[in-house]
Design a protein around this nucleic acid. Structure first.
Lengths: 222, 222
DNA sequence: CTTTTAAAAATTATAGATAATTTTCGCTTC
DNA sequence: GAAGCGAAAATTATCTATAATTTTTAAAAG
């Protein structure tokens, strides 16, 4: 079992808080009070503050010195920005990963696609989708690039969960299959082109606002 | 004068350490001892640890839990990786910035190019080069993208200072001028294409190793 | 002369305490 | 009822102290 020996309290707190922010349990602009969080985790506030620095760097929280840390807010402009950054970086990663892809990896990616298609809620779909992308990009072996993409996926997931609070409908992911088909035939440029288009597809869904009315929310659905 | 009211000790420490790492005053793999740094800055080690988390996120340091923080090391593979990430992201930023560029901005960028050409040492050149890139990309208004590019520029500068320890020779930057010419004529795609090629140009220089022999070092020179 | 071992020193990670600042909330005034 | 004011409470940022762990040093054994 993975001992948490090489894991500080700070990193554990930052993972848990990141997850809550992504899932929307912590709403945009919500204050993150260090002493409250410290108490919840049964620690002092020192590791909590270190966790905050991590969340800041990931773009999930913003720090206003002396006035506390808040969950970062976002808007359609940022959804577009993240989509375009993902297109640029995932395209790059795929071009490098292509030559290292094995049939086994592509089969695993296809399985992830099937699981995504069968997902009955948005959380299951997101997990499968993220696994698909990671599977085909990780063989690039570009650590810095992959870390940047991971942070963008976290942002994407947040947008998605915010927009699709309920009412996920199953659908067949034709893009994923087209990407895999192109990769299997060695048509890397075509695979990268589909991928770049794919992650820039922004879906919209109606969400209920706190005031009871309805507005449109936007999110990356690739 | 800029009061340091909205500036924590931690952020000041992280800026100073980042600068030292970039300039090579702190060598790759050098240990960063929190108590020593705390003493130097006349603080306790708590803000030092927060600064470490920032450096980690920037890719300038790596943390081994319980075993301390070290200056991140790098190799030719990472130089290439950063160059390609810069090409992808700066290309994206320029395409968005183009429509917001004014003659005044382009004039300022041309002035930065002239200053870079006239620079007599690598530090002055890097400063002018970074200013050129920032000037033409900032009008994109894409905060997350620009922050990512800033971190990549920090990495680039580190590679550069590591390779060009001495012996900087003046040269005229034709790429910068070609980019500006294309932008002035509204040929955005051409400008972006030159920029993407430009930042992937990797120069090489001989460096003396600690053992007295000579090897080749590589760095992004755009 | 290398390897092993054990004690000593240094270092990290976290807790608990405190000063400074900001936020909250009730009271007053318009 | 809105706007301003001023304690009181809450919160942040930092420091000092301490337990746990790692690294270094040096001596002992092979």
């Amino acid at each position: 079992m993975a001992k948490e020996r090489d894991d500080t309290i700070a990193s554990r707190i930052s993972r848990v808080l990141a997850d809550r922010i992504i899932r929307g349990e912590l709403a945009p602009d919500a204050r993150l009070r260090q002493d409250h969080i410290a108490e919840e985790f049964g620690t002092s506030h020192v590791p909590v503050r270190e966790a905050f620095r991590r969340l800041e760097a990931q773009g999930l929280a913003i720090n206003l010195p002396r006035r506390g840390v808040r969950v970062a807010s976002f808007d359609l402009k940022e959804v577009r920005e993240v989509a375009e950054m993902r297109a640029a970086l995932e395209g790059l990663a795929l071009r490098h990963a292509a030559q290292h892809l094995t049939p086994a990896i592509l089969d695993a990616a296809e399985e992830a696609t099937r699981e995504g298609d069968a997902a009955s809620d948005v959380y299951a779909w997101e997990e499968a989708n993220r696994r698909f992308h990671r599977l085909i990009l990780a063989p690039s072996g570009m650590a810095r690039l992959l870390a940047a993409i991971d942070d963008l996926h976290a942002a994407s997931a947040r947008f998605l969960f915010s927009a699709w609070q309920s009412g996920w409908e199953k659908r067949t992911d034709h893009d994923h299959r087209a990407i895999l088909a192109a990769l299997r035939q060695g048509r890397t440029d075509e695979a990268a082109a589909i991928l770049q288009k794919h992650v820039q597809w922004i879906g919209r869904a109606p969400v209920r606002t706190p005031s009871g009315s309805t507005r449109e929310a936007f999110a990356i659905v690739g």
